[in-house]
């Protein structure tokens, strides 16, 4: 039986990376447009995961599996898309802050942002405010996303925002934050542009900040 876009979306939803990759290849072979494969198949499955996650019927391990399946397909299909056809919603610079090595949440957010159509730069872990500012100057992202798992390291988010102000860059870039100890109150306190409690809403938040939601 011929593979359909719906089958591919289902494979992503099921978190089945091998099947997602196999079906993506089959659809390409059958002459399906690469953009449709990504937007309707891979991202289509992922957006259903997002809906279920918000409803509390799917959980982080499910989202991670689906995101991996989606990435496996995207990796295969993306090189075939003509550069000008790739519609990017903007560039997000993602990192885990200084003295903090936890990157699972950050990496999940990256997958979700990529799935949503952002170009993402992965700044890595243990990134000092000075390095973030340096990267902003060089790479000109639309949004900076910072992650922290510890109450001690989350304070570097504040330091980063202050340094951005000192360097006169604060109004050129939006700052969003996340991580277990972080809250909306903390985001307000340090004057970040947004906070999100999970990866799915992080993608929605980023979209709303670039006016794409």
């Amino acid at each position: 039986m011929a593979a359909t876009i719906e089958d591919l979306a289902q494979a992503v939803f099921d978190g089945d990376s091998r099947k997602a990759k196999k079906l993506s290849q089959k659809l390409l072979d059958a002459g399906e447009a690469p953009l449709d494969i990504i937007n309707q198949g891979l991202m289509g499955g992922m957006s259903e995961v997002g809906v279920q996650f918000k409803a509390g019927t799917m959980f982080v391990p499910d989202v991670m599996a689906a995101a991996e399946a989606m990435s496996a397909g995207v990796e295969l299909v993306k090189p075939l898309i003509a550069h000008e056809d790739i519609q990017s919603l903007g560039t997000v610079y993602m990192c885990t802050v200084k003295a903090d090595l936890h990157d699972i949440g950050k990496n999940l957010v990256i997958m979700m942002l990529e799935g949503a159509g952002f170009n993402v730069i992965n700044g890595g872990v243990d990134v000092a405010p000075e390095k973030i500012v340096e990267d902003v100057k060089e790479l000109h992202p639309d949004i900076i996303g910072m992650s922290a798992l510890l109450t001690t390291t989350m304070l570097h988010m504040k330091d980063t925002i202050e340094l951005l102000k000192e360097e006169g860059l604060r109004d050129q870039v939006k700052v969003i934050i996340g991580g277990a100890p972080v809250s909306q109150d903390f985001a307000d306190e340090i004057a970040a542009d947004g906070y999100s409690p999970d990866a799915v809403s992080a993608a929605d938040l980023a979209k709303s900040l670039v006016g794409a939601a």
Binding site: G15, F59, V60, P61, D62, M64, A65, E68, I104
Partner: peptide
């Protein structure tokens, strides 16, 4: 970290 493993996905529920 075990969060992203299939093993976790199989057992966490």
């Amino acid at each position: 970290n075990y969060l992203a493993t299939k093993h976790t996905r199989y057992y966490f529920r």
